Simulated scan of single mutants.
Amino acid sequence: MHSFLSEKVKELSKYNIDIYGLEDKQYVYDMESGDAFFEELEQDLIEQGHFKTHVVLNKSATMIQLQFHTEGAVTLTCDRSLETFEEPIHSDERIILKFGDHNEELTEEIEIISRNTNRINVARYIFDFIALSLPTKKIHPSLRTEDDDLNLEDDEEEAILVYSSAESTDEQPEEEEPVDPRWEALKKLKGE
């Protein structure tokens, strides 16, 4: 039992970055893992896979910027045939950690971390970026059609096009289109 726990700690400790005492400059880390990584994170989405992550850390007096480049493949189960297949993964993402007096997640990309933080573990960030890069429909490559290759963004664009063409046939002026309140809030922040 004890050796299992120490292996678990050892696997995730590969993703520790000691930030205490780092100078204000750029640092580079290369990390690589396989099935053990996915097992140790106690999640049900991915059981097997292998990947390499290149992390570029830029430290300044007020923040740490982390740039993640991940490549590899994970084993998924097809939603249609229930056969397993390898899905390639490719991800370029970033996280900004701002120094403050407490820990808080502000957005998906920006977090506040305590000034007293000595070490960060980037395993959860890497997993989240891998999970986000996976297709919404898990279809075996041999069963895929052009429709399956369309991602969610394409579907959204299609819906918008259909909506705008229907609007143009009614010949309603564009000014009457309701404005998303989030855009209004962003305009206020920009001072427009």
Rank of each mutant, 00 (worst) to 15 (best):
25 K>Q: 07
93 E>Y: 09
23 E>T: 11
9 V>R: 13
115 R>C: 04
22 L>Y: 13
38 F>I: 09
2 H>F: 06
86 E>P: 07
73 A>Y: 11
32 E>W: 07
101 D>E: 14
32 E>F: 08
94 R>S: 11
53 T>P: 00
31 M>E: 07
47 E>A: 04
40 E>N: 15
108 E>R: 12
98 K>N: 15
40 E>I: 15
73 A>V: 10
54 H>P: 10
7 E>M: 14
59 K>R: 14
96 I>A: 07
44 D>S: 09
51 F>K: 00
88 P>G: 00
92 D>S: 12
21 G>F: 01
49 G>P: 05
33 S>D: 11
8 K>Q: 13
110 I>E: 05
30 D>Q: 15
71 E>D: 10
113 I>K: 03
114 S>D: 12
37 F>V: 04
28 V>A: 13
35 D>M: 09
88 P>Y: 04
25 K>T: 13
30 D>I: 14
83 E>S: 14
73 A>N: 01
67 Q>A: 04
87 E>K: 00
101 D>H: 13
52 K>S: 11
80 R>N: 13
98 K>W: 11
80 R>S: 12
81 S>M: 10
29 Y>N: 06
56 V>P: 03
113 I>P: 03
97 L>E: 00
17 I>T: 01
68 F>Q: 07
70 T>Q: 05
41 L>M: 09
106 L>V: 14
34 G>F: 06
6 S>K: 13
74 V>C: 01
21 G>L: 02
48 Q>L: 08
38 F>R: 00
30 D>M: 10
98 K>V: 11
37 F>C: 01
58 N>P: 03
112 I>Y: 12
99 F>E: 02
72 G>T: 11
19 I>T: 02
74 V>K: 01
12 L>P: 06
64 I>R: 05
69 H>L: 03
94 R>V: 12
99 F>M: 11
112 I>A: 09
37 F>H: 01
24 D>F: 09
89 I>G: 01
8 K>G: 13
59 K>C: 06
10 K>D: 13
65 Q>N: 13
7 E>W: 12
108 E>A: 14
86 E>L: 15
39 E>P: 00
68 F>V: 03
39 E>F: 08
6 S>T: 09
82 L>Q: 06
55 V>R: 00
83 E>T: 12
4 F>M: 10
114 S>A: 15
14 K>F: 05
103 N>T: 07
88 P>T: 04
50 H>M: 15
